[in-house]
Design a protein around this nucleic acid. Structure first.
Lengths: 150, 150
DNA sequence: ATGTTTGCAAATAGTTTGCATCCAG
DNA sequence: CTGGATGCAAACTATTTGCAAACAT
C-alpha cells in the first residue's frame, strides 16, 4: 500500500533489535516464547487479545500456555515495551506500535482501528496533571460504529 | 468547596428531570430502581462499577439484583444517558457526568480521576474519521501513577 | 548458580443469558 | 394490555494465582 509495508523482514529485524534492547534495559529475560509473542503482536495491526496471540502461536509453540502469554504481555506492558488499549469491560487488547496514534472502537463489533494523529498532535499533558501525578501515557479513543456495523 | 457543590437537592432535581426526559426520548422505562441507580451514579464522582452501585443501592432496595443494575447501566450507556470509561481489562466503570472532560487512571490502584479539559478543548474528530465511521464519542485517558501510589 | 520464566491447573472476578414474574406506559 | 424491566440463578469469558520444572543470564 504505502511506505508502511508490514511483514518485511527488515522491519522485523529492526523491531526485534529494539525489543531485545528494551527488554535488557528493563531486566526482562528474552525467551523464544517471548520473541514469538512479541513478533505476533508487532506484526499484527489488529490489536489482539492475549487469547488471540495464544491461538496463533500454538502452531509454532504447541505447548505454550495462555498463562505465559498473558503474563509476558503484562510484563511487557508494565515496562513500556508494549501498550494496552481499548475500553473497559472488553478483554485487554495489546498494541506493539509505540508511535503516537489514536484509536477508534466500534461499539458494536468491538473492533479497534488505528487512527493517525491528525492536527492535534499536541494535546499534551496539562501542567496541573504533571504536578500531581506521574503521567506515563495518554490514549485518545473515539467510539462509534464502523462502516460494517452502521 | 467551589460552585460545584454536589448533593444539593436542586442539582439532583435538575439531573432527575434531565434523566427522565432522556429516558422518555429513548424509549427507556423509568422505574424506581433505575432512578436509584442513576442517582447513585450521578451523585458519585468516583466512576463506580456496576458492583459498586449495586452494593450501595442494596440498603435502599434490598432485593435489587446485580443483573438489573448491570443491564440498566448498559441500557443507559447504549442510549447515551451515561457513558462508560476506563481501560480494557478493568471492570466497566460508569460516569453520569456528560460534560466533556478527560480522565486520569492510576495503573497501580486503578482509580480514575476526572481531569478538566484544559486548553486543548478542540481535539475534535478528524474529518477522515467522520467520513468513514459514525463517531459518537471521544475519550482522552491519561495513565500513570497517582499521588498515593508513586 | 540463581532467579526468572514456563506450563499447568485451579481459583477468582466480571459479565451475560434465560426465564418466570411484575409493572410502567 | 403489552412490552419492557426485574430478580434470581446458572453459564461464560477473561484474568490471576500457585507451584514445580526448565532455562536465560
Amino acid at each position: 500500500m504505502n511506505k508502511k509495508t508490514n511483514n518485511s523482514p527488515i522491519d522485523w529485524a529492526d523491531k526485534l533489535n529494539e525489543f531485545n534492547k528494551r527488554c535488557r534495559q528493563q531486566g526482562l529475560k528474552i525467551t523464544p516464547q517471548r520473541i514469538a509473542i512479541y513478533k505476533e503482536l508487532s506484526m499484527s495491526r489488529k490489536h489482539p487479545t492475549a487469547t488471540d496471540i495464544y491461538t496463533k502461536i500454538r502452531s509454532e509453540y504447541p505447548n505454550i500456555s495462555l498463562g505465559t502469554v498473558n503474563s509476558s504481555l503484562l510484563a511487557f506492558a508494565e515496562r513500556g515495551v508494549i501498550i494496552i488499549i481499548g475500553a473497559s469491560g472488553d478483554p485487554k487488547r495489546f498494541e506493539g506500535n509505540l508511535d503516537p496514534h489514536d484509536h477508534f472502537r466500534c461499539i458494536e463489533c468491538h473492533k479497534i482501528t488505528d487512527i493517525p494523529q491528525n492536527k492535534h498532535k499536541k494535546i499534551d499533558i496539562p501542567k496541573k496533571l504533571k504536578a500531581k501525578y506521574l503521567v506515563m501515557g495518554k490514549q485518545v479513543l473515539f467510539e462509534g460504529k464502523c462502516d460494517k456495523c452502521r
